[in-house]
């Protein structure tokens, strides 16, 4: 085994230790249960990323007229597949840019969301964590 190989192995071990230490440091309870401020107040995210407000806000019902009232960058709701989502905390984080996500603010964004992100785990998981209720006619 050459010196280069030995040094590489040592480097990887040291890097792994540092990564484990950093992971343990940054997964503390105050970080592990981040809150997200919404127009209805703060929600606590459980480890799966889904909301658990305790006030059953995810069971509230909204009409499209309700959704249409929230169509700005700081107050953005949309409806996808019969559920209503508050996208406000995520608008500035959208990897595709603010403009693209704002296209579905205030409307039924099912077609646009499924056309762009249908079946993709990350967007689906993120959307699920932003659910606030059910769409009714």
């Amino acid at each position: 085994m050459t010196k280069r190989t030995i040094y590489t192995i040592v480097f990887l071990i040291v890097a792994a230790i540092i990564i484990i230490i950093l992971t343990a440091t940054f997964r503390n309870p105050s970080v592990a249960k981040p809150t997200r401020t919404t127009s209805q107040g703060s929600e606590t995210l459980n480890p799966t990323g889904a909301t658990s407000t305790g006030t059953v806000s995810s069971e509230k019902t909204y009409t499209l007229a309700d959704v249409a009232k929230h169509k700005s960058q700081t107050d953005c709701w949309t409806a996808v597949r019969g559920s209503v989502y508050n996208l406000s905390p995520f608008v500035n984080q959208h990897p595709g840019g603010v403009a693209n996500i704002m296209k579905i603010c205030g409307i039924d964004g099912t077609a646009a969301f499924e056309g762009q992100h249908g079946g993709q785990p990350r967007p689906e998981n993120e959307l699920a964590s932003l659910k606030i209720g059910t769409l009714v006619k």
Binding site: I18, I19, I20, L22, T23, T25, F26, R27, V31, A32, K33, P34, T35, R36, L45, P47, T48, G49, P89, F90, Q93, P121, R122, N125, E126, L127, A128, S129, L130
Partner: peptide
Amino acid sequence: PGSWLGFIPKSIMDISGLTAPTLVAFNGS
């Protein structure tokens, strides 16, 4: 980390047995 929790696939959490915050912290580290 809160902004990244939704990006962790459930399958990864099931396979690793780790929570989403831990996986986000590991990824970032």
